[in-house]
Amino acid sequence: DLSALRVEEVQNVINAMQKILECPICLELIKEPVSTKCDHIFCKFCMLKLLNQKKGPSQCPLCKNDITKRSLQESTRFSQLVEELLKIICAFQLDTGLEYANSYNFAKKENNSPEHLKDEVSIIQSMGYRNRAKRLLQSEPENPSLQETSLSVQLSNLGTVRTLRTKQRIQPQRTSVYIELGSDSSEDTVNKATYCSVGDQELLQITPQGTRDEISLDSAKKAACEFSETDVTNTEHHQPSNNDLNTTEKRAAERHPEKYQGSSVSNLHVEPCGTNTHASSLQHENSSLLLTKDRMNVEKAEF
């Protein structure tokens, strides 16, 4: 173990290094160091905050020279020094078990990766560091076993998940096959086929009936047209017969005018059967003409 005197000496050296690497504005270890034209180094955030307070150039807090945003430059070497100082402080805390008085939040800088452990060898070769390295080497064999167990647990979990997924996939297939086998029997399929065939026959029977009705309507229309044509021909046949009657009536009127007047009046009210309204109107006109002729003949006879 380190003596108290040596611990104090190391602590004083760390404090001196820390004062050199402090920012003059925030009085902390410089984060993202930036250098000016006057070779003074500050935190990048502190300098941008200072420049944004005034429009135009501002003055350096140490030498009062003008500073602009374009004049600022990043210093990589200074950032490396800060990183190495942080590593020294971490090693000091691990070796002594004491917390550094002016320690900052170094938890963000710590890294437990194997590459980081290899890099620590180049920091300080001390008894405390050696003991700590031995402890780490002793704890390393235990870690692979834990990793193997965790991997086995994960693989077993994956296997159970896969088996569950396969079961879920197989179950719908089985149910679907069961439904297909038990849903419709052979008799049901035959009945469905016969039902479809009967429906098709009914459709075939319905369509000819409609065509037959249309044919019957067409035949009825044709018969009505033929009947009207026969009526017209009958009226045409009746007209010459009426003319013959008129000639006979004229002759009778010349011989017996008194008797014919009474008979002509009675004939006005008689309509021949089986004739249309057109034929009756023609008869009325003929009878009126005959009456006028008879009157003329009677007057001539009187004179």
Rank of each mutant, 00 (worst) to 15 (best):
L86P: 07
K221Q: 10
Q154M: 09
E99L: 08
Q261M: 06
E258T: 09
V13N: 03
H40R: 00
K300N: 10
A101L: 04
E202G: 00
H278K: 05
I30Q: 09
V198L: 10
A16Q: 15
P172L: 04
L155Q: 08
K87S: 10
S156C: 06
H278N: 11
S126N: 13
S280P: 09
N52E: 13
E140N: 10
L151P: 14
R132P: 11
L62K: 04
R255S: 06
S145I: 07
R135S: 10
A224T: 13
Q239H: 05
E99V: 08
Q93V: 02
N65K: 10
Q53V: 06
R212L: 15
L94K: 08
K55P: 06
V232I: 12
I170G: 05
L136D: 04
K222Y: 11
S152V: 08
S139G: 11
L21G: 04
R130G: 05
E148Y: 09
V270M: 11
N105R: 02
L94P: 00
D213A: 12
S145R: 10
L48A: 06
K31C: 06
T96I: 09
Q209N: 01
K37R: 05
N105L: 05
D213I: 03
L27I: 01
H256T: 05
K118L: 12
E202P: 10
Q201Y: 07
I124T: 07
S219Y: 11
F78L: 15
V190F: 05
L217R: 01
E83A: 11
V34W: 03
L155F: 12
L62S: 03
K37V: 15
A16D: 10
L204S: 12
D188Y: 02
C43H: 02
E249H: 07
F45M: 15
K222D: 14
L136G: 12
K49W: 01
V265L: 09
S58E: 06
G210K: 10
L268E: 07
C273T: 15
E99R: 09
N102I: 11
L151I: 08
R212Y: 06
P57I: 04
E83F: 04
V34C: 05
A220T: 09
A224G: 14
L268S: 15
K259Q: 14
N105Y: 10
V161Y: 15
N15F: 15
N157I: 01
Q261C: 06
K44E: 04
R6W: 01
T277G: 14
L117S: 04
L94F: 07
L50Q: 01
S156L: 06
S150Y: 06
